[in-house]
Design a binder for these strands. Sequence first.
DNA 1: TGACACACGTTATAGCATAACGCAATTGAT
DNA 2: ATCAATTGCGTTATGCTATAACGTGTGTCA
Lengths: 146, 146
Amino acid sequence: MNAPVSTPTSAPALTKNQSLVFDVLDRSDAPMSAYTILDRLRDHGFRAPLQVYRALDKLLEFGMVHRLESLNAFVACAHPESECCGKGHGHGHGTVAFAICESCGHVSEFHDHEVDHRLGAWAKAKNFKPAKTTIEIRGLCGACAA
Amino acid sequence: MNAPVSTPTSAPALTKNQSLVFDVLDRSDAPMSAYTILDRLRDHGFRAPLQVYRALDKLLEFGMVHRLESLNAFVACAHPESECCGKGHGHGHGTVAFAICESCGHVSEFHDHEVDHRLGAWAKAKNFKPAKTTIEIRGLCGACAA
DNA sequence: TGACACACGTTATAGCATAACGCAATTGAT
DNA sequence: ATCAATTGCGTTATGCTATAACGTGTGTCA
Ligand SMILES: [Zn+2]
Ligand SMILES: [Zn+2]
Ligand SMILES: [Zn+2]
Ligand SMILES: [Zn+2]
């Protein structure tokens, strides 16, 4: 009864909790902490942080959500389904970078081949095997810099 | 009596607490959390997290310590006093990147002009004003990748 | 002297994340 | 059909990370 519900669309089937969490994030125009998500979902039966964290773990695994390390917060993936270089939400290859406005909270997700390439080259030269790369720029967005 | 003690060397004068915290970090071969630092300094009179966090805030401000966002931990700056492009510990310009081994904990601090340039170009194009940029690569170091 | 800045110490609290238990449902052999 | 393995779920308790708010002492500079 708690198994994922298959949908006619693409993307992995989400369970009820996963859908609820993703919808909250997707509708938000700013990153949300796990506890803020929890509060938003109290009316839907959420009572404990683990319900949120477990859903987030899966959504992260599916590539539908990103974690912002410098904020301890989460955002829905903002990639179009088909990017220049990748498979959209899966981020087929390449690292994603985030520009985070410290005033309005808006987050821009982007990708830069050359950055990827340079970091990859450094890793190769040092014989370092990258697993996950975090790039986050904190500052003021165009609107807020005024 | 608690004012910074001037030293004959360069660098900003550190207070006793700041020195103690920096020394602990500098001697460590892996990042340390604030609470781990606290435990290491119990014998030196440290009793509360704030004593550590206040020292860390200053050391971060001085550029002598970096915060690893993906670990919620801290490392002493590993830059040589005079880098190719900068003023050493102050990181005169340019962003620093970290490669973090998830097996042995070793951290390599480096800088890449081109990465900087590309992120700067993106920001300029989007009219985004960067304040602080985080670049962290988690993975396996050469020794651990074996 | 008084106003100020700054480092410090302490207690309490807030915010983020996981451990450990048990139950229910699904899946996929045998 | 039945059993074992897997997965999702709910709950309670706990641990880790960080800051708020208060007061003290000290050096600086009108
Ligand atoms: Zn994305
Ligand atoms: Zn903004
Ligand atoms: Zn450094
Ligand atoms: Zn290693």
